[in-house]
Design a protein around this nucleic acid. Structure first.
Lengths: 169, 169
DNA sequence: CAGGACATGTAAACCGTTACATGATTAA
DNA sequence: TTAATCATGTAACGGTTTACATGTCCTG
């Protein structure tokens, strides 16, 4: 399977979050929190917006200074359908999709958190197994100390993430 | 500046950790913990190993079945020099470099943790500032609930990471 | 003896960054 | 008035993935 292009969904989500945005404004958005999970340079953004307009996902309004884009009904459907797709293994998708939820009571939120919880519980138990099988004795730890550290760190990170997710449910 | 190629350093670090590895074994390694931070497919690994051999970073030994690679003195210097470079903003480099530290008492460990701590304290205070400026009232939170969640989650993640780093020092 | 794992290699496609360009507006 | 920011666009380059290829070895 080809690597899933998610840039168009990110753009849809950003525009939808703010109501309307210009290409330049989108490029500025990536300096904020969204930039923790995704980034795109202006040379990607402008052509992508043009393609999205061709596909009828967005409309544009030009005020003479900038071209502002708005999500169409079709675009909103595309966005929601992407957001409703089951999460894959990567945490970025979870964060991105969560970021694009505006309404406190959107039912998608619970689904997302439950999916992420499942993924992370599996990962957690996998990491614990690895710790037990790879580091059977102290010598293993002493001779691969960095590996030991990042593994225990990963376990602690998962634990922290899981308890946050449980708390939000 | 061109995007820094770190694949050769990752290969050096992996081979150095295990003593010797074949291309195939390296591709399998990415299924383990290292895969959390970096991945490469075999179509990248084999040509890269050939280049590294040309550059004298590794030697190879063929047992008829597989070609095993070993880090040369020159390769070890290259690896250590990369590991000693100041960390940039991304956590992957920290994890990778830590992973490549075998000896519990390697002085590089303290330096790495201190650098990572500095980076994360800065990030933490930046995120706290963002929270204060973006979410000034409850209405902001209600209307951008996903954004609010991922921001508070990011803050909690940093807090957890920072206290782990402090603990290890 | 067939299917899966081992083992290595190259070519094409894809996606993203950097660099190259241009011009308007605004603040020092 | 000049440097920075706003604003948009395209071309070249580079790194990674996917697909195409091939052959061996081992296990059920």
């Amino acid at each position: 399977m080809p690597k899933r292009r998610i840039l168009p969904y990110v753009l849809l989500g950003l525009i939808n979050n703010k109501g309307s945005l210009s290409g330049y404004q989108i490029s500025q958005e990536f300096k904020n929190e969204i930039g923790e999970f995704w980034h795109a340079s202006h040379s990607q953004i402008y052509p992508e917006l043009a393609r999205m307009k061709d596909d009828g996902w967005v409309d544009d309004e030009d005020d003479g200074k900038s071209t502002y884009y708005l999500v169409t009904d079709k675009g909103l459907k595309v966005l929601r359908s992407w957001m409703a797709e089951p999460l894959k293994d990567n945490e970025e998708s979870f964060s991105l999709k969560l970021y694009f939820i505006r309404d406190e009571h959107d039912p998608l939120m619970k689904t997302l958190i439950e999916q992420e919880l499942q993924i992370n519980r599996d990962k957690y138990s996998h990491l614990e197994d690895r710790l037990k099988t790879v580091f059977v004795d102290d010598e293993q730890i002493r001779n691969n100390f960095g590996h030991y550290l990042i593994l225990t760190r990963a376990i602690e990170r998962e634990r922290n993430h899981i308890s946050w997710l449980e708390d939000k449910l």
